[in-house]
């Protein structure tokens, strides 16, 4: 139940969790499942970030409309991640380029500036492949979807 207090790891340990998204959104259930686990993980007060690489970058493309394929359009939910204090969405530059995409093709996703509640900061950070590898190597746990 939502009213139950957030579960805590022993001694309040905060782990670095990265959800690695590598699949396009609507052909398989991976992207939606990942998003649901991400939302649940937010209740555990861990350091959560998301990585989008390979076809995973398609999850953040703007203008997705699933009406005619009769499935839930969960794309707008990425824009709610800031409310869940998930403020780091790393997108791999090479993966975008390989797919003919540019940063401008992605949905604007923002979160509240912790220093100023009236200001918003972008959540998406486009990083190169080497930097993505470094970010992965900094995590305690990598969850692949």
């Amino acid at each position: 139940m939502a009213e139950v207090e957030a579960p805590k790891l022993p001694s309040g340990v905060r782990k670095k969790l990265m959800f690695v998204n590598r699949k396009a959104p609507h052909g398989t259930i991976y992207a939606l499942e990942a998003l649901e686990v991400v939302l649940i993980s937010a209740a555990f007060e861990q350091e959560v970030c998301l990585a989008f690489l390979d076809d995973g970058v398609f999850q953040l493309v703007k203008g997705q409309n699933t009406q005619a394929i009769g499935t839930k359009n969960f794309a707008p939910t990425y824009r709610a991640l800031g409310d869940y204090e998930i403020t780091r969405l790393y997108v791999e530059r090479e993966s975008l380029a390989e797919r003919g995409l540019a940063t401008a093709d992605l949905m604007p996703i923002v979160h509240e500036d912790p220093d100023d509640a009236d200001e918003e900061k972008p959540s998406i950070q486009v990083v190169g492949r080497a930097e993505m590898a470094t970010l992965m190597a900094e995590q305690d746990v990598l969850l692949s979807f």
Partner: peptide, 18 residues
């Protein structure tokens, strides 16, 4: 309608506050 997700309680409190 905006986000296609029902907010968790913590998120609802924060959004209501705003």
């Amino acid at each position: 309608d905006e986000y296609q997700v029902a907010p968790a309680i913590r998120v609802l409190v924060k959004a209501m506050k705003k």
